[in-house]
């Protein structure tokens, strides 16, 4: 069983690195979708089937689609790739890379010395998750609703942009979208 976990982990890491290094945003997005899929695989292995499914449906399904939608709307494709190419020279990303390497080393060291023993994992079926979701954490769900409402209202307001109808001397705005 461990071999499956290691393969999935390897795929996730490689695809995440690809996400960061690609010039073209669409390619990066697709790599991200792959990493999400392999992540849901790991969830499944960890005995959290409900989380794995949610990952695919909501994360890969909804959020990534949103991203692609925006990229297509602004048709960023080629000239962002060109722009990113001449930007990503080694001189630029060496400093941040070292920084994150140091951070990773610290995390690695701190997690490694914890040498938590390995436990036999039981699966937590969706029923248990649903029960705990709606009995102890009911208020949490309602607050999550509030959170989403905030997101929606915010996005709606900011997304609205007034189309400039330019008269020679009278700058008049009308409200669309």
């Amino acid at each position: 069983m461990d071999s499956v976990f290691y393969i999935a982990a390897f795929v996730t890491v490689i695809s995440t690195i690809m996400v960061i290094t690609r010039h073209n945003p669409v390619h990066a997005l697709l790599y991200l979708v792959i990493s999400l899929l392999s992540l849901s695989m790991i969830f499944f292995l960890l005995g959290a089937p409900f989380a794995a499914l949610l990952e695919i449906i909501i994360y890969a399904g909804a959020i990534m689609v949103l991203f692609i939608f925006v990229i297509m709307l602004l048709n960023l494709g080629k000239e962002t790739a060109k722009q990113e190419k001449e930007w990503l020279k080694p001189k630029v990303w060496i400093g941040p890379a070292i920084l994150s390497a140091i951070l990773f080393a610290e995390l690695f060291y701190l997690i490694a010395i914890a040498h938590a023993a390995s436990y036999n994992l039981q699966t937590v079926n969706p029923k248990a998750v649903a029960l705990s979701l709606f009995r102890p954490y009911l208020i949490g769900v309602e607050l999550a609703a509030m959170l989403l409402m905030a997101g929606v209202v915010g996005a709606a307001h900011i997304g609205q942009h007034k189309k400039m109808v330019l008269h020679r001397f009278l700058k008049e705005e009308d409200d669309t979208l």
Partner: peptide
């Protein structure tokens, strides 16, 4: 589907 993945490895991946 019992599998004995050590949590440590998962945390390192995270």
């Amino acid at each position: 589907m019992k599998s004995s993945i050590s949590i440590e490895m998962v945390m390192l991946l995270a």
